[in-house]
Design a protein around this nucleic acid. Structure first.
Length: 568
RNA sequence: CGGAGCGUGGCGCAGUUUGGUAGCGCACCUGUUUUGGGAACAGGGGGUCGAAGGUUCAAAUCCUUUCGCUCCGACCA
């Protein structure tokens, strides 16, 4: 493509609307433009990258045996009511009516549509297994779209759905997708870690997320520094911590702690290690009050709690509602002497000896509190967010925490949807069975943003070759006849040999061309100017490394392809 | 939805405190000279200040309402 004809509006300055590097660079490099928050137009350069990623993903999917199809974006409400998610997904869906007043939504995901499709076709165990996928625009009315295409309200997703006769089959399908995903991400030139994940609104049993490690990532991931354990912190579990020494239980006492509400305040006021305080959190789980206890130096993991309680919604008890459940103001509640409220505690609370807790009396705390002796916990379970340095649950290592961008997510759904939507087959005995399902997503547009987060410098994007919009950019410096002739020939020949090449033939000064080439991140730059032509050479420069190579004007195209071949 | 910030030519911003009828840089158009890391000079076009209402002789500026954008949180694949 000749750049004099390319619709490539690059920006010299960073738009005020963009905060993170990938968002800024996608706008500056002329890859996309904003329509409104979370909704974007892909310009020719950006679309090329999207298509590259799609093709790589498509190939990995096809090789795994999955088959591509295309489902509608418009879904009927009946389907979603059938699965029970019309209400559950609720505000996340864009809903509307047709002229007859019938309800629809724009598809945020496609379990319902695919299940409705497949249940009509699959009758026998002989029809299984099957894995169907599509690459399509998804629509989700996100509460807070942000970071450009990282979390958009409209985004491109590859979603696949597997159908098996049993759980062994599902395990095989799941494994095949896991492998295909790793392959697709690697082929895109990305460094991705697979981590154990929570299943969230999709439901199901097992789940992995594929994470691109990046500072701007919205997810936090816990890694073991010595074994392969890795999990989203929503899911991560820490190993047993050593309990230091044994201490005699002392007699419980009430102490005056005026105005000391937070753990920090109380522990400082009483001169006690925060780990020995018991943090009491009053929550409503779908409206039911529950008191949750965690050690003062821990944070409650609400995902774990919500999963355990099978609650859709967890909200803190509002300050003004405290008197409904407690005899003190916020900051002084605790488990001792509390009645009529379910009490759950993190496992670490069990080990606290002579701890501190709220006295259920405004401006008072209790010291030398001992679980079991002074109060009863209905259930102990793992409820805390793991921290940097926590022991690994699988080995003797320690956990590290890093930020990541979720570019893929795979789920073992089991029969969640086949049961609610009655998707069944007949086994060898003629007995009706529910189809066992899995679902698998890759955020194509998010992956592009993640690739930029992982591959950029102060000058701009540095595309991995596999997803670069073009592999080579030829800069024609000046309009010297010889320069025009040489660049034109190079361009024609490279293109003829299948190398995707940009020719910067614009009437711009050299600085503009250099800067644009760096900004849009083409892996290999070829510079041709009158000056170098005098020595019968041209210059090649590798975007990622900055390596410069002088090339004699002889078999130049061979040499360029040679250099290109060794670029990642 | 709660908190914070911001909406002024295409982009980045000043002007708002203390009302007096809009300015700078970049970009754009024409011309000349330039041409290896975002050129220089000269000339030129383009905004009614997010929107609506109000106060005032007079509103970008003050008041009210509203819409949008960004960030933090809640929430969310």
């Amino acid at each position: 493509m000749k750049m004099s004809n390319l619709y490539l509006p690059t920006l010299k300055e960073t738009p005020a609307e963009a905060e993170v590097p990938s968002h800024q660079l996608m706008l500056r490099a002329g890859m996309m433009r904003t329509l409104t928050a979370g909704i974007y137009t892909y310009l020719p350069l950006g679309w090329r990258v999207i298509r590259k990623v799609e093709d790589i993903v498509r190939q990995a999917m096809n090789e795994s045996g999955a088959q591509e199809l295309l489902m509608p974006i418009i879904h009927t409400a009946e389907l979603w009511k059938e699965s029970g998610r019309w209400e559950k997904f609720g505000p996340l869906m864009i809903k509307f009516q047709d002229r007859k007043g019938r309800d629809y939504c724009l598809g945020p995901t496609h379990e319902e549509v695919i299940t409705a499709l497949v249940r009509g076709e699959i009758r026998s165990y002989k029809d299984l297994p099957v894995n169907l996928y599509q690459i399509q625009t998804k629509v989700r009315d996100e509460i807070r779209p942000r970071f450009g295409v990282m979390r958009g309200r409209e985004f491109i997703m590859k979603d696949a759905y597997s159908f098996d006769r049993d759980y062994e089959g599902l395990d095989r399908s799941y494994r095949a997708m896991y492998d295909a995903y790793m392959k697709a991400f690697t082929n895109c030139g990305l460094e991705v870690r697979a981590v154990e994940a929570d299943t969230g609104a999709m439901g199901g049993s097992e789940s992995h997320e594929f994470m691109v490690l990046a500072e701007v990532g919205e997810d936090r991931i816990a890694f073991c520094d010595s074994c392969s354990y890795a999990a989203n912190v929503e899911k991560a579990v820490a190993g047993e911590r050593e309990v230091s020494g044994s201490e005699e239980m002392k007699e419980m006492e009430e102490v005056h702690t005026p105005g000391q509400k937070t753990i920090e305040e109380v522990s400082e006021f009483l001169g006690v290690d925060p780990a020995k305080t018991i943090k009491s959190l009053a929550l409503l789980a779908d409206g039911e009050p529950v008191l949750v206890l965690v050690a003062g130096d821990d944070q409650l993991n609400e995902v774990k709690l919500a999963n355990y309680l099978a609650a859709n919604e967890l909200t803190p008890v509002a300050d003004e509602d405290f008197e409904k459940y407690f005899s003190s103001t916020p900051g002084f509640i605790g488990p001792v002497g509390l009645e009529g409220i379910r009490v759950l505690a993190d496992l670490r609370v069990k080990d606290i000896v002579n701890g501190v807790a709220g006295a259920n009396k405004t401006d008072y705390h209790l010291i030398n509190v001992n679980p079991g002796r002074d109060f009863i916990v209905d259930e102990y379970l793992d409820l805390r967010i793991v921290k940097e340095g926590d022991p690994c649950p699988k080995c003797d290592g320690k956990l590290e925490i890093k930020s990541g961008i979720e570019v893929g997510h795979i789920f073992k759904l089991g029969t969640k949807y086949s049961e609610s939507m009655e998707a069944t087959y007949l086994d060898e005995n003629g007995k009706e069975q529910f189809i066992v399902m899995g679902c698998y997503g890759i955020g194509i547009s998010r992956l592009v943003a993640a690739a930029i987060e992982q591959n950029h410098d102060e000058k701009g994007i540095i595309w991995p070759k596999a997803i670069a919009p073009y592999q080579v950019i030829i800069l024609a410096l000046g309009d010297d006849e010889e320069v025009v002739k040489v660049t034109e020939e190079l361009y024609q020949e490279l293109t003829a040999r299948g190398v995707e090449t940009l020719l910067d033939d614009r009437k711009e000064r050299p600085g503009v061309k250099f800067n644009d080439a760096d900004l849009i991140g083409i892996p290999l730059r070829i510079t041709v100017g009158a000056r170098s032509l005098k020595n019968n050479t041209i210059e090649a420069r590798v975007r990622r490394t900055g390596e410069e190579i002088q090339l004699e004007l002889e078999n130049t195209v061979d040499k360029i392809i040679e250099i290109l071949d060794r670029i990642e």
